[in-house]
């Protein structure tokens, strides 16, 4: 107890400063601060090799490719994505990623990042659902992952701060919390089956605890290069993998179950700096 309180004080100060400033930070610096502030977290410290690789995170290649794609005039309408509003105004990317999901007037609904990106690629650039640019969601070769990594990188080090001012934002976040604890599927699992305690392992994987903001900010910091997959993965890819392992039904992309879960995830990491992109096992 006493030890925890001692540790918590500098952590709270560091986080408070970062959240107030809202300044961009290199993802490796964000990670190093987290590690220093949480010397006892098995989750954060589980892979020495990944920590060492972080300055040369392969995901940084996608940042560059994504930047080119973002400003390129593309699609049937031959326009760039500079007209896309991720919530901070058209083309405004600084801090946009950590303030999602949010309610958008133009669609009348709460959208998560990937949903919004796809919306812009269809509505502004004119891509159809069948075009590879939109249809291919996963893997380093996909436009979606390149764009996601570039756009998310513009929020690195900033505190998760998904808005809850609109009643629909609050409703989706609250439904996401219910979904997180909803036991179901063939094996009765909920998200908390794996993320309700600190330091527990599924086989060799140390699991993050949702109620520990310092573990959870790393847990939800996607896009991340996933070493075991040798590909950069998204929040949506993590959900798909979890739901698959949990033996629930197969989840589809661009659907509101994803949005509600991400609304809750990002809210649970509120105030903690995001690592964008991260590197995971």
């Amino acid at each position: 107890m006493f030890k925890k309180a001692l540790l918590a004080l500098p952590v709270a100060m560091a986080v408070g400063a970062a959240a107030q400033a809202g300044e961009w930070q290199d993802p490796n610096d964000v990670l190093q601060n987290l590690l220093q502030n949480n010397p006892d977290s098995k989750y954060l410290h589980q892979s020495e090799m990944n920590i060492m690789m972080m300055p040369d995170n392969p995901a940084l290649w996608l940042v560059e490719e994504g930047e080119d794609l973002f400003y390129a005039e593309r699609g049937p309408n031959n326009v760039s994505l500079e007209g896309c509003d991720f919530g901070k105004g058209p083309g405004e990317l600084d801090g946009a990623y950590v303030e999602l999901p949010r309610y958008f007037e133009d669609t009348g609904k709460v959208m998560d990042f990937e949903m919004r990106l796809v919306h812009c690629m269809k509505e502004l650039q004119g891509f159809s659902s069948d075009d590879a640019a939109v249809a291919q969601r996963h893997g380093n070769g996909s436009d979606i992952m390149k764009l996601t990594t570039y756009i998310a990188h513009q929020s690195s080090g900033m505190a998760w701060n998904p808005p809850l001012d609109h009643p629909k934002e609050q409703a989706m976040r609250d439904a996401g919390e219910v979904l997180f604890f909803r036991r179901g599927g063939a094996m009765d699992f909920n998200c908390a089956s794996c993320h309700g305690d600190s330091g527990k392992q599924i086989r060799a994987s140390v699991l993050p605890e949702m109620r520990d903001g310092q573990e959870w900010t790393k847990a939800v910091s996607w896009p991340a290069h996933r070493a075991g997959h040798d590909n950069v993965r998204s929040q949506n890819h993590r959900i798909r993998g979890c739901v698959w392992q949990m033996r629930h039904a197969g989840i589809k992309p661009d659907t509101p179950v994803n949005t509600a879960l991400i609304s809750f995830w990002n809210d649970a990491a509120r105030g903690e700096p995001a690592i964008l992109p991260d590197l995971k096992r």
Binding site: M172, D174, A175, V178, R182, A249, K252, P256, V257, A260
Partner: peptide, 13 residues
């Protein structure tokens, strides 16, 4: 809302 999202929004295959 959680039940609605699961069963009425075409979220699952």
């Amino acid at each position: 809302l959680a039940e609605y999202l699961i069963f009425e929004t075409d979220s699952f295959r």
